[in-house]
Amino acid sequence: MFSLFRSSVRRLFLLSLLVFFIPAHSQTEQTSAYINDALVVYLHSGPGNQFRIVGTLAAGTEVIRLNEENDYAQIQYDTNKTAWLPKEHLTFTPGLRAQLSLLQTTLTEQNAKILELEQANNQYQADLNLLSQERDKIQEELTQSKRQNERLSTEISETQASFWQQPMVLGGAILLFGLLFGLLLPKLIPQRRNSERWM
């Protein structure tokens, strides 16, 4: 009978250890949490309203949940301070203040990227304008070269045409033709007479 009592006590003891150990373990697990979007949360020295108020925390403050008892949670804040507050004031997602801070940081980064892209775009636009000016200058020089080439071609054509129209050139050509004709004609005529005599 004593052994039966001892085994029953042992079972009860093990069962009580399991019952108390598992909740205690789960409640002492430290997790990051945030104060919900209530404007100000009062902190108490113990798990209830009957304990004195030891401070306040603003909405969105990041804390560490240490333990839970009844409807209160023990938290750690400001590195090493601990206090209790109603569990309803804790949330495990960042509050509006944290989200706003994150959005402001993202907005600042995006604005910096936009400014950088605008500066790069302005630089590209300036380079494009410079290249356009150089292209226009080259096209103008090419147009001027074409005009000068056409003008020189016209002058050469006019010079060649007017060369034979000059009186001295024309007279010299007639004189040369007459001289050649006068020198060659007497040589051709006597040869014919001589050839007729021999016949």
Rank of each mutant, 00 (worst) to 15 (best):
L103K: 15
T154Q: 13
A173W: 04
N70H: 12
Q27M: 11
R147F: 08
S8F: 10
R6M: 11
E158P: 00
Q148R: 15
I35A: 03
S8C: 09
E150K: 14
D127Y: 07
L17Y: 06
A120T: 07
L142N: 11
L66Y: 04
I35C: 02
Q74C: 06
K87R: 11
K137R: 14
L115R: 11
E150H: 11
I156W: 05
D127Q: 13
R192K: 13
N70I: 03
E116W: 07
R197K: 13
S3T: 10
I53L: 06
L185R: 14
E134I: 06
G60E: 02
S195F: 13
L66S: 02
V169G: 00
T31K: 14
V63W: 01
T108C: 10
L117V: 13
L18D: 03
Q160L: 08
S145V: 12
S195W: 15
W198Q: 13
A73L: 04
E155G: 00
I53H: 12
T61E: 09
L12E: 01
N67T: 07
R151I: 09
L175Y: 05
F181D: 05
L14R: 04
P190A: 11
L15A: 08
F177G: 06
Q165K: 12
Q165D: 10
E88N: 13
F163V: 00
S132I: 04
P23R: 01
T108G: 10
G95R: 00
L131I: 10
A173R: 03
E116G: 12
Q139F: 10
E141R: 12
L90T: 01
T56E: 11
F21R: 11
E196R: 15
Q76C: 10
D37C: 03
M1E: 15
A112E: 14
Q119E: 10
Q166I: 01
L152P: 00
A73Q: 03
F92P: 01
N70P: 01
P47I: 01
A126I: 02
L179E: 08
L96F: 12
L183Q: 08
S3V: 11
L117N: 09
P47M: 01
N36D: 13
L100P: 01
E141Q: 15
Q148G: 01
I189D: 02
F5V: 12
